[in-house]
């Protein structure tokens, strides 16, 4: 039986399009609202990345930082984040959910406790930004044992040798960081060049679903139609900020944006 994440990729492939992955920060701008956003955008997105906000993020640009600080300021705690996931998983449009966060939050919860809670909430996968390979070997094995997909990251600086070892140790899904940037950076590399690297990864590891993230927006997304999946994060976070500043409802605006993104790759 395929796990939920692989199933989502298969479904998109059957429709001859990349899977659409969204990233929103848990608790942005409130617990209730972030849950509503997840419920709405899951009409169009295939996999939902949920950011665990952290206050010393070393890889996030301004947009995601703003969302994270907002969520933390509004009092979001790790247990609230699990609750958001389990509530979402009970909703009718439930889709696979992936956490994206920094290792200290897992470390303080305790790896085993954290995974127990992940499983209980129905979480499907995990991206830990600052736990690279080979440091993540033990933890990623623990994830596997708990049927949670540990998603390895690859970047343009990853050597070929590392690439082979990392993909070998990865589970069903891998994440390619398109360029040297924090999240939310402008696409400073040509899509063609990104696709060359993407195809290199696919050649080494054809069976794994590889998504591209960083710099993917409404403007750039249609350049990457022939891929397994695409992640849009900062643009969504920015839309939440914009909506709040204009006293508009972020749920409606974000949902509109994700629907447009989906159309662009369908």
């Amino acid at each position: 039986m395929l796990n939920q994440i692989s199933l989502a990729f298969k479904k998109a492939k059957d429709e001859k399009r990349p899977a659409l992955l969204t990233y929103t920060v848990a608790g942005d701008s409130s617990k209730k609202q972030s849950l509503e956003i997840l419920k709405e955008i899951s009409n169009y997105a295939d996999i939902l990345e949920v950011g665990i906000p952290h206050n010393t993020p070393v890889a996030d640009g301004g947009q995601i930082q703003t969302s994270s600080y907002r969520a933390i300021k509004n009092g979001i705690k790790m247990n609230d984040i699990f609750k958001i996931v389990s509530d979402f998983k009970k909703s009718k449009n439930s889709k696979p959910v992936i956490f994206m966060g920094y290792y200290n939050m897992i470390f303080q919860y305790g790896e085993n406790n954290f995974l127990k809670k992940c499983k209980k909430s129905g979480l499907d996968g995990l991206i830990v930004v600052d736990l690279p390979w080979p440091e993540n070997k033990i933890f990623s094995n623990k994830c596997k044992k708990n049927s949670i997909n540990f998603i390895q990251l690859l970047s343009p600086t990853t050597s070929n040798k590392r690439l082979k070892s990392i993909t070998k140790d990865s589970h069903d899904m891998i994440y390619y960081i398109s360029m040297l940037s924090t999240t939310g950076g402008k696409l400073k590399v040509s899509p063609k060049k990104i696709l060359v690297n993407y195809n290199k990864i696919k050649k080494i590891s054809p069976k794994k679903n590889c998504v591209i993230g960083f710099g993917i927006t409404e403007k750039t997304i249609s350049n990457f139609k022939n891929t397994d999946g695409l992640v849009v994060g900062s643009q969504i976070c920015k839309e939440i900020t914009r909506s709040l500043n204009n006293r508009q409802n972020p749920v409606i605006n974000v949902s509109k944006m994700v629907s447009k993104l989906r159309k662009k790759i369908s």
């Binding site: 930004v129 600052d130 690279p132 390979w133 590392r162 960081i177």
Partner: peptide
């Protein structure tokens, strides 16, 4: 100590 860094920084 250790190296809790994003993949991009592994190489440099």
């Amino acid at each position: 100590g250790g190296n809790f860094v994003p993949e991009t920084l592994k190489k440099p």
